[in-house]
């Protein structure tokens, strides 16, 4: 093993003894001085997880979260110095974490925390110009494509994910309903916010994001949800800044 492989081996594994060849100022074995590095690594990563996953931390409490986070950081150290991207494996990790298996919605809460952070750091875009909705003919509009803003994220959950988020921001928001929910996260200026989507709008936005023309995306949403409400869905997306550009060859 290389020197740094040896030094690294115990940093995230308390069962591994301190490496040999480390000394204090009197040429005695360094002993617990190595633990300063173990502690720095584990604590700094655990704290990074706490600020990165505020909803998960709130849901399981400040006593439990560090234990969950510590277990995660020991098996999943960051793969890059960009800590803003740390934790993408956390939802799947939680899903497999036996002691929390009874909280079925926890992985989706972690997905929401990840999505909020992704939105926060996403590229800026100029304000959306909706003029094309007026100037294009109805047929041309069916062929038009909508580019979502880089800060827009769509989450489709089997759980009342929006209600869970809202209740944990403000318990006055009322207890979460018993329903699956689709959430749109958008960022106007600098602060991302989740919005509850009308039924079918998650699929509709996903199709638009994948490049489907307006008409095809609408057909897909109606096929999945017969009472899909285009007006309400479009209104919400426009009001929350979900779109970046309306693209059509007749629009410059």
């Amino acid at each position: 093993m290389s020197d740094q492989a040896t030094f690294r081996a115990g940093l995230l594994d308390p069962a591994v003894a301190a490496p040999t060849g480390l000394l204090d100022g009197n040429a005695q074995e360094a002993g617990k001085r190595y633990d300063v590095y173990r502690n720095n690594v584990t604590v700094s990563l655990t704290e990074a997880m706490t600020s990165a996953f505020p909803l998960v931390a709130q849901l399981i409490g400040e006593k439990n979260f560090p234990r969950l986070a510590r277990s995660f950081v020991r098996s999943h150290p960051p793969a890059s110095p960009l800590m803003m991207h740390y934790g993408v494996e956390f939802p799947d990790f939680i899903k497999r974490f036996e002691p929390l298996a009874h909280i079925g919605y926890l992985p989706d809460a972690a997905r929401l925390d990840l999505a909020m952070r992704r939105s926060y750091h996403a590229a800026d875009t100029p304000p959306f110009d909706p003029a094309g909705f007026q100037t294009l003919s109805p047929n041309d509009l069916l062929d038009a494509r909508l580019t979502l803003a880089p800060s827009s994220v769509i989450l489709r959950s089997d759980w009342p994910l929006f209600d869970i988020w809202a209740y944990n921001q403000n318990s006055g928001a009322g207890k979460p309903r018993s329903a699956s929910q689709e959430v749109l996260i958008t960022r106007q200026a600098f602060d991302p916010a989740p919005h509850l989507l009308p039924s079918g709008a998650g699929l509709w936005l996903e199709r638009l994001a994948a490049g489907a023309p307006f008409g095809i995306a609408h057909d897909a949403a109606v096929a999945a949800v017969p009472d899909f409400d285009l007006g309400a869905s479009l209104g919400l997306a426009l009001a929350t800044g979900a779109f970046a550009v309306l693209n059509h060859k007749d629009l410059i």
């Binding site: 740094q4 492989a5 690294r8 940093l11 995230l12 720095n40 150290p77 960051p78 110095p81």
Partner: peptide, 17 residues
């Protein structure tokens, strides 16, 4: 200092001989 080993970023400034 070093902070990355085998593509794991350890988020600390680690010492070298």
């Amino acid at each position: 200092a070093w902070s990355t080993h085998d593509s794991a970023f350890l988020n600390d400034l680690l010492p070298l001989p």
